[in-house]
């Protein structure tokens, strides 16, 4: 059984079983795959260096087509499509790369059963877990507070039969882990 995050003098610590770590690693990896920008062969390294996407200057550049990716990278200006697109041109590549960095770091932390997060690492780990929850929620069709309660009520692994029931349990596990980390982090602010 996993043990929730708690404050220790060395940082925020939690324990995860091997199967739980394998599950988490897979989830972090899935979100990385969603976020990795398309690699174009003639990419100008200067664009990448300043955090801009050379794809961003193509005619067909637009918002993500996948709903989960769209939830990770929402429109900045819902009333103004041109302004939203301009924001994406300037910022999206950098946001993707910061997210991928945090997710890779989180996946690496799953190598060991006892997880120890420093003050600096903890916010990035929390953001990585949050991105995993956003993607799971999108896949589960979680859109309202009622959906959230319905999903939250599922807690019996032995009764999970469908993919959605299994995903709901995974979502609840990740939520539990994030909540325990947030309580520990709020105490240390």
């Amino acid at each position: 059984m996993a043990r929730a995050f708690k404050n220790t003098p060395r940082g925020f610590s939690a324990t995860l079983e091997a199967a739980e770590r394998q599950l988490m690693r897979g989830l972090f990896q899935d979100v990385i795959t969603l976020l990795e920008p398309e690699v174009v062969p003639d990419e100008d390294p200067l664009w990448a260096m300043v955090g801009m996407d050379s794809n961003a200057h193509r005619e067909d550049f637009g918002p993500p087509t996948d709903r989960a990716t769209m939830r990770l990278l929402p429109d900045s200006n819902p009333d103004d499509a041109d302004a939203s697109l301009e924001f994406r041109r300037l910022s999206e590549r950098g946001i993707r790369e910061r997210k991928i960095g945090a997710l890779r770091e989180a996946a690496l932390l799953m190598e060991s059963g006892s997880i120890l997060l420093s003050e600096q690492t903890a916010p990035r780990f929390a953001a990585a877990i949050n991105d995993v929850r956003l993607v799971l929620a999108e896949r589960l069709g979680l859109e309202s507070e009622e959906d959230a309660e319905r999903i939250h009520a599922q807690d019996d692994w032995s009764k999970a039969e469908s993919v959605d029931e299994y995903l709901a349990l995974v979502y609840n596990f990740v939520t539990w882990m994030q909540e325990s980390l947030m309580q520990a982090m709020l105490k240390s602010l």
């Binding site: 929402p74 200006n77 819902p78 950098g94 946001i95 949050n130």
Partner: peptide, 22 residues
């Protein structure tokens, strides 16, 4: 505010910006 929105999206919060009077 644009840099705040980028930071909020980094955290995974649903953030948007508007002109104040709008």
């Amino acid at each position: 505010i644009e840099s705040d929105v980028a930071a909020m999206h980094g955290f995974g919060l649903w953030a948007t910006l508007s002109k104040e009077d709008a």
